[in-house]
Nucleic acid binder design. Structure first.
Lengths: 124, 124
DNA sequence: ATTAGTGTCATAGTGTATTATGACACTAAA
DNA sequence: TTTAGTGTCATAATACACTATGACACTAAT
């Protein structure tokens, strides 16, 4: 895992974990790496991982069994779909649209983007 | 101007100024607010504005006349189009595409996005 | 020459993310 | 009961963005 300069590490850990859940690599009920283990893996301090896990617990996507570890909450996937979709439309999409306007990007420039969107139309 | 929590202020000032240039609100040759003036306007420290201006000067989009002030460089617009397009395709677009896949967003969800893209096709 | 406005530099202080480390409570298994 | 693994809390140290402030050099206009 490589971190971006311009975003807090504990938020990037959260983003990475959220992605694992939404893509199905982590399933509800799964035990996730312990605070110490993940910290060692990604070469980050224990406290930083703790902060990520605490945040995700507060968001309702992780559950915590003291002395045992953290687990993906049963309703994590649907909760996350809600959170992430809301975030996407409120925070992510508007500046993207603005940027596309300003840079005058057309269908040809954004071919790969359009392909993905249309491939999602079929799956209904 | 309201700042986001999760991005450095001096970078947000730069983004804001870049947008003004690309949308034509600031023209090549225009004098921009002095370091002190802008700092007072947006209630930020002089040094923070200085850091933004120094960054933009280094990027070749601002020019500096000592004792007079900062000016939009003549080639600012084309320089910026290059920088911003490269940044967009390398850094911005890939995670967006991934997010659209993960959240299964279709043409209906992204109607406004598609509208903007297609409106850019005409202008050629 | 003086004045006001510009950028520039240096210093010190504040807040916060991150690190480093130790200690403690809880749980499961030997 | 002991041991190893878990989360949790507290403390101190480091790094960096940002603030606050003063001083200085340059430029244009009076």
């Amino acid at each position: 895992m490589d971190f971006s300069e311009h975003k807090n590490i504990f938020l990037q850990i959260r983003d990475w974990m959220v992605d694992q859940i939404l893509t199905g690599k982590l399933q509800p009920g799964d035990k996730i790496p312990s605070v110490r283990e993940l910290a060692a893996d990604i070469e980050v301090n224990r406290n930083t991982v703790m902060r990520s896990y605490a945040l995700m617990e507060e968001e309702g996507i992780l559950e915590n069994k003291r002395g045992i570890g953290f687990f993906i909450s049963p309703e994590a996937r649907s909760t996350l779909l809600g959170i992430q979709r809301k975030e996407f439309f409120k925070e992510t999409l508007p500046p993207i649209i603005h940027q596309i306007q300003v840079l005058q990007l057309n269908s040809e420039d954004l071919e790969s983007l359009l392909a993905v969107i249309h491939s999602n139309d079929a799956k209904k």
